[in-house]
Simulated scan of single mutants.
Amino acid sequence: MSWTTADMPDQTGRTVLVTGGTSGLGLASATALSTAGARVLLTARDPARGRQACARADAELVELDLADLDSVRRAAADVRERTGDTLHVLMNNAGVFGTPPGLTVEGFETQIGTNHLGHAALTWLLMPALRAAGGSRVVTLSSLGHRGGTVDLDDLHFLRRPYTPMRAYNQSKLANLLFAAELDRRLRAAGEDVISVAAHPGLTNTELLDKSMRGGAPGRAPLARVINLLTTQPLRTGVLPQLYAATAPQVRGGDYIGPRGLGGMRGRPTTARRSATAQDPDLARRLWEVTAGATGVTPDPT
C-alpha cells in the first residue's frame, strides 16, 4: 500500500475533532483534514498555543484538558452545541509520554488519566453527535509501546506497584487499544453506523518524542536531536496511519493501522500487529467497566 494524503477522499461537508492539535501528529492531522475540505475543531489545553495552531491549520479552537473531567464535559458540550450535534470523526490523538509520577485533577495517574480515561469519557459524551452524523469514526491513537504493556485493573494508578514512566505509558497505550476494540464490538452489537478504529505512528519525529529523549535535561538536547533524526521517520509519513484510519473507504471497524515497515516502525499505512493482551475481549470488557466507574460517565453504547 502506497497511500498518501493525495489519496485522501474529499472531506467537504464533514466535521472532525482532533485532540491535542497544537503540534506534532495532531497539528499535522488537523492541517491535512482541513486542506481536504473538512471543518476541523482542534483541542488545546493552552488557549494561546491553541489559537496559533488553529491559524496554521484553518481550524476552530476547543479548550480541553483531558486530565480534568470537568474540562472534558465542558468541551464535549461545546462541540455538540457548535456542530449542531453532528460529528463525523473523533480523532483521539492527544497524549503525554513518560511523565514523572503525578496525578490528574481527579487523582488518576497522569498517563492513564490523560491518555485513556479522559479520551474514553470524551468519546462517550460525544457519541450522540457521532451517531447523528452517520458513517462516522472514532480513531484512537495507540503506540508500539502497547506491546510491552500490562493493564492492572486493581492498581491502574500505581498506588502499590513501583512506578516507572515507561511502564505507565505502555499501560495507557494498551488501554487505548483495548478501549478501541471494545467500543467497536459494542457499536456493532448495537447496530450503530459508527466504527471504532485504532492507529499508531511507529517511530515518528515529533516534539513529544524529542522531549522524552531529552528527559528534561537541557544537556541531552543535541544528542537527542541526532538520535531522533537517525531513528525516526518524518512527521509527514508518521501521520499517515491516523489519516488513513480516519478517511480511507476500505477501513473497517476494529482495524488497527500502522506503518508497514520492519517492526511497524516506519513506512506507509497498513494493518498493524497488536499484542495478544490487546486482543483479550474479557480484559477489554472489564477495563470498559472500570473506566465507567472511575470517570462517572455513562458508557455509550451501553
Rank of each mutant, 00 (worst) to 15 (best):
V194I: 14
L159N: 11
T204M: 01
P162A: 02
H200S: 01
A190K: 06
I195V: 11
M166V: 11
P201C: 03
M166I: 12
L177Y: 11
Q171T: 10
S196T: 01
L203G: 13
A199N: 07
R186H: 12
E182L: 08
T164E: 15
A190F: 02
T164L: 09
A168D: 12
N170P: 11
R160A: 12
K211H: 15
R185C: 06
T164I: 09
A168P: 10
T164W: 01
D184K: 05
Y163M: 03
A168Q: 10
E192H: 07
R185D: 11
A198F: 00
A189S: 13
Y163Q: 02
G202H: 06
N205W: 11
M213D: 07
F179A: 05
D184A: 02
D193E: 10
A189F: 03
L174D: 14
A189Y: 05
V197H: 07
R185Q: 05
K211L: 14
L174V: 13
H200I: 04
M213L: 14
M166N: 14
D184Y: 05
M166P: 14
G191T: 11
A199F: 12
A189M: 07
T164K: 00
P165R: 11
K173P: 15
R185K: 02
L209N: 10
A180N: 00
L177G: 15
P162M: 00
R186T: 15
E207M: 00
D210E: 15
E192D: 15
M213Y: 08
A190S: 07
V194W: 04
D210H: 13
K211W: 13
R185N: 09
E182V: 10
A181C: 04
P201T: 06
V194A: 11
A175C: 08
L209T: 12
A168H: 07
E207C: 01
N205A: 13
N205H: 14
N170M: 08
D184P: 13
S196I: 02
R161W: 01
T204K: 00
N176R: 10
R167A: 15
D184M: 04
L174G: 13
R167H: 15
V197W: 08
L178I: 03
